[in-house]
């Protein structure tokens, strides 16, 4: 299994490549077609935000696992990193409908609902790192 891929996002093509890399790995891990669509959509939202708000950055897609007494849980982890303007008010950007670009403002709150774990680390003026995981149940 290709354990990790890094996709540079600085053009719209980067968004498409990140989506494709995510779908391929999600398939390899054995996610259902609905989860594949959820994961691909989440990657698309994160990659587009990088392109729109930070100009460039990268999406890291990797297979992860967690060992439990009942067996091994497999998942996919998406990390979106940029050195853009950062997000000042994280609570605000997580509200449905909040947008500074005339979008639907559905991206970040949507990603949080599509995935199982979601974390934003952002410093104004320095950049943003968003980490999110989907487990294969």
């Amino acid at each position: 299994m290709s354990v990790q891929s890094n996709v540079e996002v600085r053009t719209e093509w980067g968004i498409v490549s990140a989506r494709q890399a995510g779908r391929n790995l999600a398939k390899e891990i054995g996610f259902s077609s609905v989860d594949q669509a959820r994961i691909t959509t989440a990657i698309s939202e994160l990659a587009r935000n990088i392109y729109l708000y930070a100009e460039k950055g990268e999406i890291i897609i990797e297979a992860v696992e967690e060992i439990h007494s009942t067996g091994v849980k497999h998942g996919i982890k998406i990390t979106a990193k940029d050195k853009g303007p950062g997000i000042k008010n994280i609570r605000q950007v997580m509200e449905d409908g909040f947008t500074t670009s005339g979008g639907l403002g559905a991206g970040l709150p949507g990603v949080k609902r599509l995935m199982d774990e979601f974390d934003i680390d952002s410093v104004a003026g320095e950049g943003t790192e968003i980490t999110t995981i989907k487990w294969n149940s």
């Binding site: 609905v34 669509a37 959820r38 449905d96 639907l104 559905a106 709150p109 949507g110 609902r113």
Partner: peptide
């Protein structure tokens, strides 16, 4: 519209 796409749109709140 594919089922997976419809489900994802609803999850997204769109």
């Amino acid at each position: 519209i594919q089922p997976a796409v419809a489900i994802t749109l609803i999850d997204m709140g769109i």
